[in-house]
Amino acid sequence: MTDTTTTNESGPVLQIRDLSRRFGGVAAVSGIDLDVAPRETVAIIGPNGAGKTTLYNMVSGRLKPTTGTLTFEGRDITGLAPHRISRLGVSRSFQINNIFTEMTVRENVEVALTALHGWGKRWFNVATRAKPLQDEADTLLERLSLSELAHKRAGTISYGDKRLLEIAVVLATRPRLVLLDEPTAGMTPQETKRVTALIKSLAESGDYTFLITEHDMDVVFGVADRILVMHRGEALVVGTPAEVRDHPEVRRAYLGEEDEEDAEETAS
Rank of each mutant, 00 (worst) to 15 (best):
residue 5 T to N: 12
residue 6 T to K: 14
residue 7 T to Q: 05
residue 9 E to P: 03
residue 9 E to Q: 13
residue 10 S to R: 11
residue 15 Q to P: 04
residue 20 S to P: 04
residue 21 R to E: 02
residue 29 V to G: 09
residue 30 S to K: 14
residue 32 I to M: 02
residue 33 D to Y: 11
residue 34 L to R: 07
residue 37 A to C: 08
residue 38 P to E: 00
residue 39 R to N: 10
residue 44 I to S: 02
residue 56 Y to A: 13
residue 56 Y to P: 02
residue 57 N to E: 09
residue 61 G to E: 01
residue 63 L to A: 11
residue 69 T to Q: 15
residue 70 L to G: 07
residue 70 L to P: 00
residue 73 E to C: 14
residue 84 R to P: 00
residue 84 R to N: 08
residue 85 I to H: 11
residue 88 L to K: 07
residue 90 V to F: 06
residue 92 R to F: 11
residue 93 S to E: 02
residue 95 Q to P: 07
residue 96 I to Y: 01
residue 99 I to C: 10
residue 100 F to N: 05
residue 104 T to G: 05
residue 116 L to F: 09
residue 122 R to N: 08
residue 123 W to E: 12
residue 129 R to H: 14
residue 129 R to P: 11
residue 129 R to E: 12
residue 135 D to K: 15
residue 143 R to F: 03
residue 143 R to N: 05
residue 145 S to R: 14
residue 148 E to T: 11
residue 152 K to M: 10
residue 152 K to C: 15
residue 153 R to N: 14
residue 153 R to C: 12
residue 156 T to M: 06
residue 162 K to P: 06
residue 165 L to Y: 04
residue 165 L to W: 00
residue 169 V to F: 01
residue 171 L to V: 06
residue 172 A to P: 10
residue 172 A to D: 04
residue 173 T to D: 00
residue 174 R to N: 14
residue 174 R to H: 15
residue 176 R to C: 13
residue 177 L to I: 05
residue 177 L to K: 09
residue 179 L to S: 10
residue 181 D to H: 03
residue 181 D to M: 07
residue 183 P to G: 12
residue 183 P to L: 10
residue 186 G to P: 06
residue 188 T to K: 12
residue 189 P to I: 07
residue 192 T to N: 09
residue 193 K to A: 14
residue 195 V to H: 07
residue 203 A to P: 04
residue 206 G to K: 07
residue 208 Y to G: 12
residue 210 F to R: 04
residue 210 F to Y: 02
residue 214 E to D: 11
residue 216 D to Q: 11
residue 222 G to F: 11
residue 229 V to G: 09
residue 230 M to G: 09
residue 231 H to P: 07
residue 231 H to Y: 13
residue 237 V to I: 13
residue 239 G to P: 01
residue 242 A to S: 10
residue 244 V to E: 01
residue 247 H to T: 01
residue 256 G to F: 00
residue 259 D to E: 10
residue 261 E to I: 00
residue 263 A to S: 10
residue 266 T to V: 13
